[in-house]
């Protein structure tokens, strides 16, 4: 879909997994929804590349952080739903903490040099 791209934001390395896990906290979703949610919540700053979404989903599933099942979508289409597992939830907490530390650290560095 088109839309105005204010910032051409490349996904920060390694954040895709975290974003997917975060999205699924709200409940099971299929790939389309996950992409939409990430894009909408980021106000279209982040653009999910389909080419990396599906490999990422499968990778997370292989690691046991997600489980999947085929179900019916909102409009009764067959779609593959992904669901957070307990291990996935733990992983999300760990990654969120690390992310938080990272942001703060970067923030401290950036803040000093500007003022």
């Amino acid at each position: 879909m088109g839309g105005k791209k204010q910032v051409k934001a490349e996904m920060v390395q390694g954040t895709m997994d975290m974003l997917i896990l975060r999205t699924l906290v709200m409940g099971p979703a299929h790939g389309h929804t996950i992409a939409h949610v990430i894009e909408h919540t980021s106000e279209n700053v982040l653009e999910v590349e389909q080419g990396s979404l599906y490999p990422a989903l499968h990778r997370l599933e292989d690691r046991g952080w997600l489980s999947s099942y085929w179900g019916a979508s909102e409009n009764n289409r067959k779609a593959k739903f992904y669901k957070l597992t307990a291990a996935g939830r733990r992983q999300l907490v760990a990654e969120a903490n690390r992310w938080q530390q990272m942001v703060e650290a970067i923030g401290r560095v950036m803040g000093e040099s500007l003022s």
Partner: peptide, 21 residues
Amino acid sequence: RRDEELAREIEAYIELEAEEN
């Protein structure tokens, strides 16, 4: 088998997107 499943998943994605459109 996984490739087949992925193909169906992609199919589903495109259908959903098309529906939204």
